[in-house]
């Protein structure tokens, strides 16, 4: 209102610059209210986004069992490489014993296909050797091997754990 020209009563007194600056820097009531309102709105908005995100994030469940039986030892011949469709798993058996590794490409999850040199991925061209080691990108990790054990006459696999890529004779109940 009096911006620009001094108030008649103030003319005589020299302005207290420091005090004026201090007063100016204090938030006015309106400023405070609108700022608080803004913060509250932002908080509500963030909360709503959080609630929505949590709403869309499924809570547990839905996953396939990590420990599954894959057959009896007789299902797999010595020297054979078998692909189990449902588990997307290669099961090898040699003189040393059994071993199992995933057929899901470690790049983006396509199923790798068998070739003469090992495995190749039909989606982005990664190559793996016969033991699942990366030969060429874009995959950077080897196909993961999973532990096997024998229980109730069945071979079980734990898809949630990873082991070194070797075949070994199975022992009853180990790792169960």
């Amino acid at each position: 209102m009096f911006k620009g020209q001094p108030h008649p009563l103030e003319v005589a007194r020299p302005p207290d610059k420091a005090l004026e600056a201090q007063i100016a820097s204090l938030p006015s009531r309106r400023d405070f209210l609108s700022r608080a309102g803004g913060v509250a709105l932002a908080a509500i908005g963030l909360g709503a986004v959080g609630v929505a995100a949590r709403f869309f994030l499924p809570s547990g469940g839905g996953g396939a069992a990590a420990q599954v039986p894959i057959g009896v030892p007789g299902d797999f011949k010595v020297g054979s490489l078998n692909w189990l469709r449902e588990q997307e798993l290669f099961v090898v058996r040699d003189e040393q014993g059994f071993g199992a590794f995933s057929s899901r490409c470690t790049h983006l999850g396509c199923t790798v296909k068998r070739t003469a040199e090992g495995f190749s991925c039909p989606c982005h061209g990664a190559r793996f050797d016969p033991k699942g080691g990366v030969v060429r990108g874009p995959a950077r990790r080897n196909l993961p091997w999973h532990p096997l054990w024998l229980a109730d006459g069945m071979i079980w696999v734990d898809l949630s754990r990873e082991v070194a890529p070797i075949t070994a004779l199975l022992t009853k109940g180990a790792g169960a």
Binding site: V72, D75, K77, V78, S80, L81
Partner: peptide, 16 residues
């Protein structure tokens, strides 16, 4: 082998 039955030491299982 067919579904793990029969077959010798080589050759893939022809179950599918």
């Amino acid at each position: 082998p067919l579904s793990g039955r029969g077959g010798w030491d080589f050759g893939s299982d022809l179950r599918a």
